[in-house]
Design a protein around this nucleic acid. Sequence first.
DNA 1: CAAGAATGCGAGCGACCACTCGCGTTTGTC
DNA 2: GACAAACGCGAGTGGTCGCTCGCATTCTTG
Lengths: 231, 231
Amino acid sequence: MPEKSETPETPETSETSEKEQPRRRQARGERRIAQLLEAAAAVFTTTGYTAASTNAIAREAGVSPGTLYQFFPNKEAIAIELADRLMHELREMYGEALAPVDPTTPLEEAVGAAVDRFIAFNCEHPVFFTLMHGPDVPGRMAEEHDALHATLLSRIEGLLSSFLPAADPTDLARTAHMCLGLYKAGLELVLAHEGAERDAYVQELKNALIRYLDPLVGEGLGHPDAPRTTA
Amino acid sequence: MPEKSETPETPETSETSEKEQPRRRQARGERRIAQLLEAAAAVFTTTGYTAASTNAIAREAGVSPGTLYQFFPNKEAIAIELADRLMHELREMYGEALAPVDPTTPLEEAVGAAVDRFIAFNCEHPVFFTLMHGPDVPGRMAEEHDALHATLLSRIEGLLSSFLPAADPTDLARTAHMCLGLYKAGLELVLAHEGAERDAYVQELKNALIRYLDPLVGEGLGHPDAPRTTA
DNA sequence: CAAGAATGCGAGCGACCACTCGCGTTTGTC
DNA sequence: GACAAACGCGAGTGGTCGCTCGCATTCTTG
């Protein structure tokens, strides 16, 4: 296992320490990093993480393997950095997308808005689905994935509990898992199509989620239109 | 090469000089093959296809790498043979599970029966999900996967069309895709849990599918008295 | 401009993996 | 029992991949 001894850490960082910054980068370096991450995104989306070779990423970026390793300590760090940047961009969006809504808001509206934003993000960054869904992710990425997963689940639970104030926590968690699973399934289908067909699948995904949740909401709120329950 | 009756698509002359020469196996060999496939199933399920090494499979089976290659020409052939045997076993089941039903059968019953059988099969053979869902499958396996996918889709379409005789073929295909996607999502959740919780997820999967399809059946048939429940 | 740091290169190293080969052992057949 | 074929072994081979190293080039800074 190639273990690179870290530079003598804690030099001095009295000021704002965003991250460990043992290296001074030039503008050129930042450009290369962005270029490499873009190339990595392209290669990851087409071949997946494990099958993607660092040489292929460097070639895609038009640089040599050595240059790649000037900016990233190893292959995993490339995926980590890529995921981190996407996460950061995502956080700015889903903070609104899954904010708890008051129960007077119709379910369709809440689900539709959340789905639209997430679908838009994933369509704009197809790598995200590859990195977060692939079974061939390195250990450190799994944590990132699990963290996002847990955050999303708690958000969904929060949203659901605003519609179902009196629900068993276990059932709530299960319903949230189902919602996330159904969403992932729909996302895969959405990404596999384009144009009008893609839009149709988005609508179908919304339908599936709304119809799945509708009876629960109706019964949870004491709606008279609760035709069927599953004990 | 494992012995099996190939389709006579290679019109060689009377002399089958090369190509397929089914090797004479002894009982011991057949046992080894089964043993190796079982070991391969275990390794594939835990590590996935690409990450699984042939040496690991041989070790799991308690034989040497050379012995493994006595019965399989390469790593892909192991997965192929494994998938073929599972497919064969599956075909005997889903022929009944998705056989077209007359529309008088309630939707819940049709969906419930199909889901139950497929869930049971996948729970008994977790490799199947790994081989058919993993993004890291070899080229030849992708065909097998696509073939199953297409077969399942046409079966689902057939079942749906028995409930929706007058439906746009495009919509029908899309709905079938959605059903299969939703099922896969539910299957993943089902496999991730055990015991009572697993059963609960099975029920939730059925709910999601039935609720997704119910409005379509009600409106598509134009039956004002469409049976919504048979409680 | 000079010095040093950051950047850039690409041949090559070590590790791993799918797969092979030569040879010894077991089994079926006469 | 004798012969051949199927079985079994495990060190070895070629190839790929992550990653390194020495050296050349470009930028920054005083």
